[in-house]
Structure formats: C-alpha cells, structure tokens
Simulated scan of single mutants.
Amino acid sequence: MTRSTPLLALNWKMNKTPSEARAWAADLASALVPGRAELAVLAPAIDLPALAEGLPAGVAYGGQDVSQHEAGAYTGEISTAMLRDLGATYVIVGHSERREYHSETDAVVAAKARQAQAGGLTPIVCVGERLDVRERGEHVNFTLDQLRASTDGVGENLIVAYEPVWAIGTGRTATADDAEEMAAAIRRALAGLYTADAAGFRILYGGSVKPDNIASICARPNVNGALVGGASLKVADVLGMNDALR
C-alpha cells in the first residue's frame, strides 16, 4: 500500500479473548465492503491465531508490542520471530501507555523498532505530548525530540503515529488542524532524518478517533490514517470509519 492509502491501525489494547477475537473477525468478514482504507488489527498476541483464521482477505494484523531482544531468557516477552510466524506484518512500539506504565524510554522504543525491522515487521512508532506540554506551547519541539530519539538507528520502513496523550481514551480529540500541524512537523523532521522522500512516509493520528471525526482528520494532507483505540472494539464502528473514508 502507498502513503495515499489511509491506514486504520486498530489497537485493541488489553481486550478480547481468542474466542471473542474469532467472533469479531467473522462479523467483520460478513459485512466489510472494501473501501479506500487499509485495515490492520493490532491485537494481544494470544488473539493473533484466531485473527489469522478469520479476518477477511486484505485485512492485516500485528502486535501491540515486541521485545527489543531477538530471543533468550526474557520471561513474558514476545519476539519479532514469534509475531512473524503468526503472519503479523505490523507492531506498535512506544505507545504512551507503554511509556507511562512500563517506563519505556525513547532508547528502548528505538531498540524495539530496530528489532522489529530486522525481523521483517513494520513498526508503528508512537510519539506525542502530555497536556501540560501542549499548554506551555512546547508540543511541537517535545514531540519532534521524542521522534528523533525513538527512531535512532531505525530504518526507513516505519510508520509514525502522533498520539497526544491528553486525547487518548479521554473523549477529548485534537482538532483536524492540531493533527495536521503536528503531522506536517513530523514529516519535515523525517525529511531531515532519512534520505527517502518524506512524502512517502505514513503518519497516523491517534486519540479518541471515531466514525464521526475520522474523515475530517484524515482529509488533511499530512495525515495518512489513524491509530484507533476504543472505536476498534466494535465491528460497527470499524465499518463506520471504513465507510467514512470512501
């Protein structure tokens, strides 16, 4: 898929058992009419076999996190090879919840992204500011500093998701102008970090995305899709977002 194809990266977070994932996939397969968007389900690793069996053709899937290590004595962690063996193509790294609740640093995020790429996965690298940073007017510099550190040594095969922490799961959504401001700044920063044409990078917005606001956000020239949380859990909402991007 190209940058011009919007990506809906559906982050289930810690929701759905394998049997629930199987039912969700069946419901999606029975009703999805392929549209302009690409869909990718980012699910708990235990759900991936059920998704592999039941998702409709053309819908990708992947993990919500990956180890920075290739293999070894790292109890509880999941390697790139494990995800790839299940057919995963994407993985989220550096989500704000991992940064906050598991104290992941930018260096750890970059190490995970490098490991993901080495094993054939496309990392979705998350960056974004807290409310206090935005209120001080420091959101652009903060997020770009985080981006540079979180992509240290990371190759060009990546997606960047801008997720203002103050808009995640709060019902408060950044405006389309807010999303575009940061996406444009991120694209300019990527132009300085990589030799590839910055126009080719996908930049997603994440934070309380729903069927009724996704079209206006993704209509902006530098926003190439969305990292969707709560609205990814109901098939009806996913269908609504897909239809909104036709």
Rank of each mutant, 00 (worst) to 15 (best):
I159M: 06
V165C: 07
L204Y: 06
I203L: 07
R172K: 14
R148G: 08
A179M: 06
V154A: 03
L144Q: 03
L193Y: 03
A199L: 08
R202M: 04
D178Q: 09
G155L: 12
T195M: 08
E181A: 15
D145N: 15
R172A: 13
R187K: 10
V140S: 03
A176G: 13
G192N: 10
G200K: 09
G169L: 11
H139R: 09
T170S: 14
D152L: 15
T170I: 13
A183R: 00
E181R: 14
T195D: 06
T175V: 11
L147P: 00
T143C: 05
T173S: 15
L144H: 05
E138S: 14
H139S: 14
T195V: 12
D152R: 13
E163Q: 10
L190C: 04
A199M: 07
D177V: 14
T151G: 09
A167D: 02
A179P: 04
V165L: 13
N141D: 14
L147E: 00
T170R: 06
V160Q: 00
D197Q: 09
A174I: 04
N141R: 15
T151W: 03
L144E: 03
E138C: 12
G200P: 03
A167K: 01
A196T: 11
G200M: 05
G155F: 10
A198E: 08
T143Q: 00
G137E: 05
F142T: 13
A184K: 10
I168G: 02
D177G: 12
A174N: 03
A161G: 09
A167I: 08
S150V: 12
N141S: 15
G155A: 13
A167S: 14
A183T: 03
F201D: 00
A185C: 12
T151I: 15
H139K: 08
V165N: 01
G171P: 00
R188A: 14
G155Q: 07
R202N: 04
Y194S: 06
A198F: 04
A167V: 10
R136A: 15
G137Q: 05
R187N: 05
R148L: 10
Y162R: 10
